[in-house]
Design a protein around this nucleic acid. Structure first.
Length: 416
RNA sequence: GCGAAUGUAGCUCAGCUGGUAGAGCUCCAGUUUGUGGUUCUGGCUGUCGCGGGUUCGAGCCCCGUCGUUCGCCCCA
């Protein structure tokens, strides 16, 4: 038997209901916020990602699906959206005259990782980005949008963690000091962290090794290095969130995995997800456009892992109802098939959902089927109905049944 | 990339110290023939993940492989 590749899965009809529900929420909420959808290719030139995400990150180092195409171009299946989005915005000049752009996206992404709960090799993200402003109002808007999505999905059990990693200067000064401190404790650091000391020291703050955590506890605090700009920005975000009564926790250890962030970074956490407990994350990126050859375009955005959102829906027992079939048409003789289509066609013209048997099952089986799929109404066509150009309409919930002529079909629609 | 567990009918699972497979649910049909949901009766379904090996004989033991799950790492 041929199996789907590791870390991929089929989304079957039973599950698609949840997906469509979530996708509708994404569409409705972004619409209310005035965000437009952007779709980009699923694969890009490899440099789109290597130049933006950061050569030190695992994503670029070992998790990308990268290959040479038949023209010897290095191609990569997108592991995340921000880089692609920035590339598309630059290429199409969307922020040409510092135009504010509000964009959202939804689609599949690819990372070569060991599969786990809430982690797949092909997974889906929904995200939104606000481009062309460095003002903290944009950070707030994006957080409000994220919060709205969660609310509309009906999710309650989650936490928002926020941090600021300041601007580039702050980060450089801080990193120097942090490295100095960590170097002095180097012999007690984990192997992982010794490696990160060279590659990406900020990530050591995030380490889960017991010894590392102890060392990090006494490490210098980034807030002590903040300049005016960084302070003002972070203070604005914090006070506005309080005003808007959005609960959050400040987590000074929160350092996101991608290199391009500055100032505000945040993460949504849930207990329903096991060790992969972040279901959303984002932050401000003010220099990414320049890194990809564009002009200075300070921006902020976030992404949700859709599989993780759906796991949370399940954990919180959110029932997503499927629309019940409006009509099931049952015939007592195969000869009435074309008459059946005539009626079905009429009903569909009126936007009703209609179905019927195609396997020439017994009349009784057809009724059982109608019952099984929870059809609201049953239309019965036997010899009498066929000969008199009519049908019996039965309300499945109260078993009331009445005869109608086919020309009455439009008048009964109103009652249903 | 590292560690651990696991893989038997559509689903959930049983299968004693090795003798070529069962249960519940689902599904299908019937219950005397123009009416569903409850009963009742009957029925179908498995390359026991895949490939080797040991054995007279393997679902059960050994090796490999693939998938899944849980940690680590990383991230959404």
């Amino acid at each position: 038997m041929i199996q789907a590749p590791r870390g991929t899965k089929d989304i079957l009809p039973d599950e698609i209901i949840r997906w469509q529900f979530a996708e509708n929420v994404f569409r409705n909420v972004t619409k209310k916020f005035g965000y437009d959808e952007l779709r980009t290719p699923i694969f890009e030139s490899t440099e789109v990602f290597s130049r933006s995400i950061g050569d030190n990150t695992d994503i670029v180092n070992k998790e990308m699906y990268t290959f040479l195409d038949k023209g010897d171009t290095s191609i990569t299946l997108r592991p995340e959206m921000t880089a692609s989005l920035v590339r598309a915005v630059i290429q199409n000049n969307l922020t040409n005259r510092d135009t504010l752009q509000r964009l959202w996206y939804f689609g599949p992404f690819f990372r070569y990782e060991r599969p786990q709960k809430g982690r797949f090799r092909q997974f889906h993200q929904f995200g939104a980005e606000c481009l062309s402003t460095s003002n903290p109002e944009a950070d707030i808007e994006v957080l409000l949008l994220a919060k709205n999505i969660i609310k509309e999905l009906g999710l309650k059990d989650f936490k928002l963690n926020i941090n600021s990693i300041g601007n580039k200067n702050v980060r450089e000064n801080y990193t120097k000091d942090l490295v100095k401190y960590l170097e002095s404790n180097k012999e007690n650091l984990s192997e992982e962290s010794k490696f990160r000391l060279i590659k990406n020291p900020l990530r050591i703050l995030d380490s889960k090794y017991e010894n590392d955590i102890k060392i990090v506890e006494n490490s210098p605090q980034i807030f002590d290095f903040f300049d005016n700009e960084s302070n003002e920005h972070f203070n604005y975000v914090k006070s506005k969130l309080n005003e808007l009564e959005i609960n959050f926790e400040i987590n000074s250890k929160l350092v996101r995995g991608l290199d391009y962030y500055s100032h505000t970074v945040f993460e949504f956490q849930s207990n329903a997800l096991g060790s992969q407990d972040a279901f959303g994350g984002g932050g401000r990126y003010n220099t990414l456009f320049e890194q990809l050859g564009g002009k200075n375009t300070p921006s902020v955005g976030f992404a949700f892992g859709v599989e993780r959102l759906l796991l949370m829906l399940e954990a919180e027992n959110q029932q997503i109802e499927k629309d019940n079939m409006d009509f099931y048409i049952a015939i007592m003789n195969v000869d009435y098939q074309s008459y059946l289509f005539e009626i079905a066609n009429e009903l569909r013209k009126n936007n009703f959902m209609v179905t019927y048997d195609l396997q020439r099952k017994s009349f009784k089986s057809q009724l059982k089927e109608a019952n099984k799929i929870n059809a609201k109404y049953l239309i019965i066509i036997g010899e009498e109905e066929y000969n008199s150009k009519g049908f019996n309409l039965k309300n499945m919930s109260n078993s009331q049944q009445q005869f109608y002529k086919i020309e009455d079909i439009n008048s009964i629609m109103d009652k249903i």
